[in-house]
Nucleic acid binder design. Structure first.
Length: 271
DNA sequence: ATGGTCGGCAACCGA
């Protein structure tokens, strides 16, 4: 069977629910992982997702900031929420799909919203950057994110780091800009390496090619400037690497009316 | 070199 997964930082799920519906009707992923829902769980637009065919929902929201959600057409069996850096921030939710749906092994899916880290790339002067680095250190130390048993694993989300040279529009001009500083790139790649994760985008698109999933709201013309960054990621365990049959970035969504500054990133797996 | 724009929620904070 084929399962399709999308990750999208929606920057308010309530404000942009019509854009979500537009994407879901066109792309029909089986599973949608959202970040920055900015929505308490009791205000999440459940009915709209149900009408669209997404009846299974795992929520970790909070008022005003952050917030993650997984909505699915396929039932999942268990859900989990992890906290990092002793904060109650809603930055993680996971679900496990069982073999009942036709998979040859269970599949654990982690959805993350890593802290953005503020503006000043020095942890001694900027507590938000210190928090981001500590968050990445905790991800590295988290054994649940070191997939090594018989299950399949995926880790998706807005990781707020563009780790490779061509994950940003200008490596040279971004070296001191939070999201592409050497220390956070190294830490994110450490999380990836210790878990044995495969970066789906970079397994399919050469490192020499520019790839972006985010374009700033502050550009007068985002498409003309094209000063993007690849902040949104889909990682899979080695057991799934050869089963990825499609990967796409829906860049057109950045040009929709009142868009998120992030676009949907989608991978299909043959399970 | 600097400031540029969003969303939440009601003055700024976070991005």
């Amino acid at each position: 069977m084929r399962l399709t997964f999308t990750t999208w930082n929606i920057n308010s799920v309530r404000l942009r629910i019509d854009l979500v519906a537009r994407f879901l009707k066109a792309a029909r992923p089986d599973v949608l992982c959202l970040q920055e829902t900015k929505c308490p769980d009791d205000a999440f637009p459940l009915k709209r997702f149900k009408r669209l065919g997404y009846e299974h929902v795992a929520l970790n929201g909070q008022k005003g900031y952050h917030g993650v959600a997984i909505v699915s057409r396929v039932p999942f069996e268990t859900t989990g929420i992890r906290t990092f850096c002793d904060k109650v921030d809603s930055r993680h939710v996971s679900v496990e799909f069982g073999t009942g749906a036709g998979l040859d092994a269970p599949l654990v899916l982690h959805n993350f919203y890593v802290p953005a880290g503020g503006d000043v790339p020095d942890p001694a002067f900027n507590p938000k950057f210190a928090h981001k680095l500590a968050f990445l250190d905790e991800m590295k130390a988290c054994t649940a994110l070191h997939p090594q048993n018989g299950a399949h694993h995926m880790l998706v989300g807005d990781l707020n780091v563009a780790p490779h040279e061509h994950d940003v529009w200008s490596h040279r001009q971004m070296l001191k800009v939070v999201s592409h500083t050497p220390i956070e790139c190294e830490k994110l790649l450490d999380v990836q390496a210790i878990g044995g994760w495969r970066d789906v985008a970079r397994e399919r698109i050469p490192l020499s090619e520019k790839v972006y999933t985010w374009w700033s709201y502050r550009a007068a013309d985002w498409a003309a400037a094209n000063r993007g960054r690849r902040l949104d990621h889909i990682w899979v365990s080695p057991s799934l690497s050869a089963r990825v049959s499609d990967f796409r970035i829906t860049q057109a969504a950045r040009g929709w009316e009142r868009p998120s500054d992030h676009v949907p990133v989608t991978a299909s797996l043959e399970l």
